[in-house]
Computed example of a mutant assay.
Amino acid sequence: MKQLGAFLMLLVVLVGCTSKSFDTKEAMLEYLRDPENHYLQQKKVNGYEFSLLYKPTDLLVNQELSASATEDEIRQLRSKYGAFLYFALSISKNDQELLSTTPKNRQEFGAMVNRLAFGMGSKVHLLTSKKDTIPLLDYVYPRMYGMSRSTSMLFVYPRDKKIKDSESLTITIGDLGTYTGEVKFKIATKTIKNEPTITFQ
């Protein structure tokens, strides 16, 4: 009985560690956007909606993949994008961008534009459970000029060795002039290690 119990426990662990695979990007996104799967986290602070989505490697691969891609090309793209972690952060108030709701005058507007375009590296930090800081490698802020329902940004970090030894990762977002204080999101490292894939062929 003890051996059977141990086998069942091992089976549960193995099944729990198996990453999911989807036939299309849309199917993967539907899975990722379900908060119960822990890839999307949302918070509301002082009237502002914060949303953090971890983007698996294959979402980035899919953007660059041609319809006639070979297995070797898919493997190369997975190697290229798999070296990094991608986090999409969205912030909104009343279903509008920060620049449409937060600045009270032209001076504040200019300061926020500068902060969003060039200063997010000092505002957003990725930390391991041992409090090691993972350096920001790249940051994308597409200016939408009031045409979007939220301010969206993409943060890119190296898949650092320190992450493998960390039980979780924490992303901290400093106050952006929103009087929300520091906002934190925590994601288990195993969630990233078992990230879903797309079946391209």
Rank of each mutant, 00 (worst) to 15 (best):
M1H: 13
L11H: 03
V13Y: 07
L14I: 03
S19H: 15
S21F: 08
K25E: 09
A27F: 01
M28T: 05
E30W: 02
Y39H: 09
L40S: 11
V45K: 11
N46L: 12
G47A: 08
Y48P: 13
S51Q: 12
L52M: 11
L53S: 04
Y54R: 03
P56Y: 01
T57S: 00
T57M: 02
L60K: 13
L60P: 00
V61F: 02
L65G: 01
S66E: 14
S66Q: 15
A69I: 07
A69N: 06
E73F: 04
E73K: 05
L77F: 09
R78V: 11
F84C: 01
L85H: 00
L85D: 05
F87I: 07
A88W: 10
N94L: 12
Q96F: 06
L99Q: 09
L99C: 12
T102C: 12
N105L: 13
N105P: 00
F109K: 15
A111G: 02
N114D: 14
N114T: 12
N114C: 01
F118L: 12
F118E: 06
G121N: 09
G121H: 04
K123P: 00
H125S: 13
L127R: 07
L127N: 07
K130P: 03
K130D: 03
K131C: 08
I134C: 03
P135C: 13
L137E: 09
D138T: 03
P142E: 07
M144E: 14
M144F: 04
Y145A: 13
Y145H: 12
R149N: 10
S152C: 01
S152A: 07
V156Q: 05
Y157M: 03
Y157C: 02
R159A: 03
K161Y: 02
L169R: 00
T170R: 07
I171S: 11
D175W: 10
L176E: 13
T178H: 10
T178N: 10
G181C: 09
K186A: 06
I187M: 08
A188K: 15
T189A: 01
K190I: 05
T191M: 02
I192E: 01
I192V: 09
K193H: 12
K193P: 08
E195K: 12
P196E: 01
T199S: 13
F200H: 07
